[in-house]
Design a protein around this nucleic acid. Structure first.
Lengths: 206, 206
DNA sequence: GTCTATAACGCGATAGAC
DNA sequence: GTCTATCGCGTTATAGAC
């Protein structure tokens, strides 16, 4: 029956994508072999090539999922208008994903680090217009004197950097926390600190 | 004469280290081959193995240089006492290196990203005590009520993340700046923004 | 100290039996 | 749709002539 095969297909693709995310984040694109991913997915190596013709194709599929997740974090920019509400919500959403799904952030970071050799032109069409909308909103707040005058891009970068740090540099964070991953309480504390420093930093009360 | 040979040796090692920093930053550890580095250094491939037995050894030598540079940025923690002076100086120094020597920051970032597989135990002995001294200083400021109560580690992470972002995510920063690298003026603007948001964020006047 | 030649190996990808 | 066997290539590392 066709449904049966389709179901196998769906599950295998899911297993492969999940395994790939894990290994790419751990070892980087260049350090990852198809064999590593196959082992992690508990599938024969050639099976991967059946679903994804090349290593590039598989990698791109992993990255595509990520951008979608991140865009959802920024829905608060459209849903709310008050800078305090928008930024508090945005920082919390991004910090949450840094904790719950750090792998994606790491793969993204490595890709940008190396100048987006495999994402390339895709970024121009997706990231650029998306980021410009956010910057326009911040610029509006400045013009209406609702926040102190800041360069919109610089504020955006501070938020991205501070929140993603807990995913990308998670190893260092753990190391400096006596080798233990941050507890729920410690992490909530970090969310509060990032939020309050950013808000106060642009002239708002946390 | 021995001096001649020593001089050749010194210069070749320097060429190799510089080329390695370039290529490792561009392609990552796994994506880099000894051949890539040899080409960049304009030396025969086997010559690299003469000076550095293995790829690991060369990579480690590159990383070692970096930690030393970074520690110098933090001398202000010992030299000054006023939080406003220390942090302003620290942020400016780190932003400066993000602009003048972004390659090192990228290699470091990738190494931490993947859980420091090659630096490993070295970090325990060097980074941890070093970072704890900085945190102790910040904790002192909080206790003396010279800055608002913040988690010292969280503040440190925000500074590291915000400043290193301009090196590590330089590709993204350029992309969102109409594809042009930040001008001197724009970069100075970014330094000011980071500094003032951080300082105001912990209750100081920029 | 330099460089050519080559060994030993792991990788991505594919062909073809099942 | 699955999986074994294998090809061809690029890699690290080294041996040995110069």
């Amino acid at each position: 029956m066709a449904n049966h095969k389709i179901e196998i297909r769906r599950r295998n693709i899911e297993k492969i994508l999940q395994a790939a995310e894990q290994v790419f984040a751990e070892k980087g694109y260049g350090g990852t072999s198809m064999g590593d991913i196959a082992e992690q997915a508990r599938l024969p190596r050639s099976n991967l090539h059946y679903y994804f013709n090349t290593k590039d194709e598989l990698y791109r599929a992993v990255l595509q999922d990520l951008l979608d997740v991140w865009k959802q974090d920024a829905q608060c920019f459209e849903r709310f208008d008050d800078p305090r509400v928008v930024l508090t919500s945005y920082i919390r959403a991004k910090m949450g994903h840094s904790r719950s799904r750090p792998l994606g952030s790491k793969i993204w970071a490595e890709e940008i680090l190396h100048g987006a050799p495999l994402l390339g032109a895709n970024l121009d069409d997706t990231l650029v217009p998306w980021a410009q909308l956010k910057q326009a909103k911040i610029r509006g707040w400045v013009q209406d004197k609702r926040i102190l005058p800041v360069e919109p891009s610089a504020l955006l970068y501070m938020i991205w950097a501070a929140t993603q740090h807990y995913a990308d540099f998670g190893y260092q964070v753990t190391l400096l926390n006596d080798g233990q991953p941050l507890s729920d309480l410690a992490f909530e504390n970090a969310v509060q600190t990032v939020t309050s420093v950013i808000l106060r930093g642009i002239g708002l009360e946390p």
